[in-house]
Amino acid sequence: MKVALFIPCYVDQFYPNVGIATLELLEKLGVEVDFPLDQTCCGQPMANSGCETDGIGAANLFVENFKDYDYIVGPTGSCVLHVRDHFNKIQQTEEVKKVRAKTYELCEFLVDVLKVEHIEAEFPHKVGLHLSCHGLRGMRLGQSSEIVGQDFSKMRGLLEKVKGIELIELDRKDECCGFGGTFAVTEEAVSVKMGKDRVADHVRHGAEVLTGGDMSCLMHLGGIISRKDQPLKVMHIAEILNGATL
């Protein structure tokens, strides 16, 4: 199985530790991982701003970088969703179709492809799981609270395998954090208020750590936590699953 690691641009630049945790976790699980060196961005920031056509170059480059792998795995629901749903704007060659179908969010890959039963990690802390919207409602990594049906969450399922972890319940289990790409800047007031409310929900329920599958949401929430000097730390889910300590 040839697996390529997809590290979103802002993770590459600002959160190398998340990339490292993802890589080490996959290696620990016996996967041979390759990191295509010429990767940049999936093109989502442009597309969500209405400038889909400006993202076409990035999309084509993505396909070029990843076309030769069986699976493409990234620690992000948001960018993976973009590859799957919005690479429909480039010409649908066999390569493009394959890349779209074979790009996985990390937790989804662990659950659906590797069928991981056991996680070698210990994290004796109270943790709040922020379910990022693109992973939740876009990729259906879990059941959103609006839908009537059996509740499930692939991320929660993995965290529950971590020794000593205590997952807290939130008042609003899957409300958006307010990041939303350029929304975070163009709608600054609402974005920040959403983030503050999301953080407050975690603080209210005694979380020591706020985790999630998308560093973009966590960057936004972490920025608010840091500015207000709140007693809470953000960590990407890959870090916890890889056995990080606080």
């Binding site: 969500n48 209405g50 919207c133 693109h134 939740l136 409602r137 876009g138 959103s144 609006e146 839908i147 409300e175 958006c176 307010g178 990041f179 939303g180 790409g181 350029t182 929304f183 163009t186 709608e187 609402v190 974005s191 959403m194």
Partner: peptide, 12 residues
């Protein structure tokens, strides 16, 4: 159309 994070709660 930009007054949204595209969180998808409305669609669900």
């Amino acid at each position: 159309p930009f007054a949204s994070t595209l969180c998808g709660s409305c669609s669900d």
